[in-house]
Amino acid sequence: MTPTIIFDFDGTLAVGDGPVLAYARHAAEAAADDYLRRVRAELDLHSRGASSFRDGYDVVGTLAREDGVDEATLNAAYMHSRSRLGTADAPVSPAPGLTELLDELDPGIRIVLATNAPDDGIHALLQSWGIAERFTATHFRVGKPAGLEPILRAALAEGPVLSIGDIFAFDLAPAQALGADTALVGATADSSPESPTLRGATLDLIVPGIRRWTRSALPSSSVPTSSLPQ
């Protein structure tokens, strides 16, 4: 039996609005004059858990569409932001507690990356953070939520699964439906009406719960997953 932890990327492994703002700056060329001001105001609301948007990318795209920006322009703006991922134009940081967690996890735990983003710049970032070799598999342009299901099913066939992400509907709902454990991180973690196994505004806040999950998931353990802290 091989337990698996599946991580999302943006807002989960990588934190910071750098790529979102790079996306917005590019989209702003075709939007209204006050577009960037409105984006920043909505991002501030989202960071405080007071926004109805899924994440920063949803903020940028929705407000741009309201200004009449077409999909081709938005797609070009998004791909531009991804091409700058991790640079001074689109800075991100590893989630607090991430590198320490991956260093200490039992090598019997499979670590998988599954993201809707393209792979532009992600491998280089993982390398620069010193964690690239810890990932057993990396999946890009997954097409969540539906596209996550085959990844989950394959992992569940091998053992227990914990799916970690910042958007419940995309990262966690498919996992929960298939019987996997889930961890919600980010701005919506405290206010979400959903029922993930673990939740915390930042990754480091749920690290104790992840440690407990790994002890329960490894074959030698008998700690019940239902005793995990919320």
Score class of each variant (00 low, 15 high):
Leu45Pro: 07
Val60Gly: 04
Arg84Met: 13
Pro94Trp: 02
Ala95Gly: 09
Glu71Pro: 05
Val59Glu: 07
Val60Gln: 04
Tyr35Arg: 01
Ala88Met: 08
Ile111Gln: 12
Val59Trp: 00
Val59Gly: 03
Ser81Lys: 06
Leu36Val: 04
Ala90Asn: 07
Arg110Leu: 09
Ala50Ile: 05
Asp55Glu: 09
Leu36His: 04
Met79Lys: 14
Glu42His: 02
Pro118Met: 08
Asp58Ala: 14
Gly49Ile: 00
Ala64Tyr: 02
Leu43Asn: 02
Leu74Asp: 10
Asp44Ala: 10
Asp58Cys: 09
Thr99Asp: 02
Val59Cys: 05
Pro91Gly: 09
Arg54Thr: 10
Asp67Lys: 04
Thr115Arg: 07
Leu43His: 05
Val60Lys: 06
Asp58Val: 08
Asp120Lys: 14
Arg48Gly: 00
Glu100Ile: 04
Asp34Tyr: 01
Pro96His: 06
Ala77Met: 10
Arg48Gln: 12
Ile111Tyr: 02
Val60Ala: 11
Arg82Glu: 12
Leu102Glu: 11
Arg65Thr: 09
Ala88Val: 09
Asp103Val: 06
Ala88Arg: 14
Gly97Val: 01
Thr62Ser: 15
Ala72Met: 12
Val60Ile: 09
Asp55Ala: 07
Asp67Pro: 12
Ile109Arg: 00
Ala50Asn: 12
Arg38Trp: 11
Pro96Asp: 06
Arg37Trp: 11
Leu63Phe: 08
Ser52Pro: 07
Glu100Asn: 11
Asp119Ile: 03
Val39Met: 07
Gly108Ile: 02
Asn116Glu: 07
Glu104His: 13
Tyr57Met: 08
Gly108Glu: 15
Pro96Trp: 05
Tyr35Lys: 01
Glu104Leu: 11
Met79Ser: 13
Leu102Lys: 06
Gly49Glu: 03
Val69Tyr: 01
Glu71Phe: 08
Ser47Ile: 05
Arg65Trp: 11
Leu101Gly: 00
Ala90Asp: 07
Arg40Asn: 09
Asn116Thr: 06
Tyr57Ser: 10
Phe53Asp: 01
Ala90Gln: 06
Ser83Gln: 15
Leu74Gly: 09
Tyr78Asn: 13
Thr73Leu: 11
Phe53Pro: 00
Val60Glu: 08
Ser93Asp: 14
Ala50Asp: 14
Ser93Pro: 00
Glu100Phe: 03
Asp58Lys: 07
Ser93Gln: 14
Arg84Ala: 12
Thr99Gln: 11
Arg48Ser: 00
Asn116Asp: 14
Arg54Val: 10
Thr99Ala: 10
Gly108His: 15
Pro94Ala: 08
Thr62Tyr: 02
Arg82Trp: 03
Thr99Glu: 11
Leu101Met: 12
Gly56Thr: 05
Ser81Asn: 07
Asp44Lys: 04
Ile111Pro: 00
Leu113Arg: 04
Asp67Thr: 07
Ala95Asn: 05
Glu66Pro: 00
Ser93Lys: 14
Gly86Lys: 04
Asp58Asn: 13
Ala41Ile: 03
Leu63Gln: 02
Thr62Gln: 12
Arg40His: 12
Arg48Ile: 00
Thr99Phe: 03
Leu101Pro: 00
Thr87Arg: 08
Met79Glu: 14
Leu102Thr: 08
Thr87Lys: 08
Leu85Tyr: 07
Asp67Cys: 13
Leu43Thr: 04
Pro96Met: 05
Asp44Tyr: 05
